[in-house]
Amino acid sequence: MAERKCTLSVLVENTPGALARIAGLFSGRGFNIDSLCVAETLDPTLSHLTLVTRGDDQIIEQIIKQLRRLIDVYKVVDVTEEGDFVEREMALIKVRAEKENREEIYRLCEIFRLKIVDVSPRTYIIEVTGDKEKLEAVIELLRPMGIKEIVRTGLIAMKREKKNP
């Protein structure tokens, strides 16, 4: 069976150990986690978790069922399966910005609408937000300038509302 990427949106009780349960479930059952993003929700008693994983249909079905089986897991949605959704990721990129390429990087940021969030005599820290493809494109363009460090948040995702109700 074909492997597919799958983005899961998981609401989980904001209790100590809830994240450990989820991480433990993946390692214990041999499932993959490509990225994981956790934060509070509007309801402070729930945390939201976006989890990107891979597998064939049967494995993804198992992953979802096993997640639902955890007592602390309130809701699991396979965003990719539902179809229409928005995905975003953010990265902070520390890039060498010496005299000769400072201007070029600045222009690049304008074109891609990137934010320079920190300036030092020899580096910029650039904030990139977008889907995976945009992030990869920006990273590739900046690479020749000399990337010192990258930190990525991992994907977050949200279902779109129906346009024509």
């Binding site: 049967q58 079905e61 198992q62 069922k65 096993q66 639902r68 089986r69």
Partner: peptide, 8 residues
């Protein structure tokens, strides 16, 4: 009773 047992 356990959905995860089905199709496992």
């Amino acid at each position: 009773i356990d959905p995860s047992s089905i199709q496992k």
